[in-house]
């Protein structure tokens, strides 16, 4: 039995908008184990983003338990949550969220600035290793506007890797990319997963979800379906079989 990374019990989240109470999550039970590559799916308003915010320790549930790597998140204060995000979590966003006019290397280093245990010398080395892992070591001095969308997302992935997180959260990480580049990014995620990284991937595209190992489908604040992916796509193979794009030649 693999180690449980995330354990959620009867999780509820309510928002108060004026006098109306919106029940975004209505009793979620979920478990994610080490090495899982989970896709959280659902239409907009299904609660998947709220779920990701809570899992990512950016938001707190109204009620219910959340154990992250054996730690009860509900009892932590703001600063402890920030430290937790810094040490244990990685984030990849739809719009990359890289700092403009800042080199790829500096972008990747960023999380380490908030970890006082890491010295300036180590910082650069760790960041460089992370960039190497996403195949962009040769672009370390490029700024985001000198990189393509796919490369920017890979820098963002390197940034999420730099603190060796127990789980990486990706929020529509392929949402801004064309099909080919999406597959490249998914191939990278599959590679990382193969090396043992736990990944939680939020998407509304079913074909992207088929690159993962397990799908959890949300609707109206409930999990309506959950199951392992049977005929899983291999992104590398699909890329190799894709006709080469000649549009820009």
């Amino acid at each position: 039995m693999k180690k449980t990374i995330i354990e959620v019990k009867n999780l509820r989240k309510e928002f108060h908008v004026g006098e109306v109470t919106v029940r975004a999550l209505r009793g979620i039970n979920m478990e994610i184990r080490e090495g899982d590559f989970v896709a959280i799916m659902g239409t907009s308003g299904s609660g998947k983003s709220t779920m990701l915010n809570i899992l990512g320790c950016l938001d707190k549930p109204t009620s219910g338990d959340y154990l992250l790597d054996g730690l009860s998140v509900a009892s932590l204060n703001k600063n402890e949550l920030a430290a937790l995000r810094n040490n244990k979590l990685g984030f990849v966003f739809q719009s990359y969220n890289l700092l403009p006019r800042t080199t790829a290397l500096e972008n990747v280093e960023l999380p380490l600035f908030y970890n006082s245990k890491i010295k300036a010398k180590e910082r650069k080395e760790i960041a460089l290793n992370a960039l190497e892992a996403v195949g962009l070591a040769d672009r370390m001095h490029h700024t985001p506007n000198q990189l393509s969308g796919g490369q920017q997302q890979r820098v963002a992935i390197a940034r999420s890797l730099v603190n060796d997180p127990v789980v990486i959260f990706a929020d529509e990480a392929t949402g801004n990319l064309d099909t080919r580049t999406s597959y490249e990014v998914m191939s990278l995620f599959q590679e990382l997963n193969a090396k043992g990284k736990t990944i939680v991937f939020v998407t509304h595209e079913p074909d992207i979800a088929r690159f993962t190992t397990r799908n959890v489908i949300f609707r109206d604040g409930h999990i309506i379906r959950e199951g392992d992916v049977e005929d899983r796509f291999n992104a590398r193979e699909m890329l190799d079989n894709m006709p080469i794009n000649t549009d820009y030649e």
Binding site: A82, Y114, N163
Partner: peptide
């Protein structure tokens, strides 16, 4: 604002 959001997501405290 987004940069601030990002910094917070990757572990910056309010004080930072």
């Amino acid at each position: 604002t987004r940069e601030i959001g990002l910094r917070m997501a990757i572990g910056a405290r309010g004080l930072d």
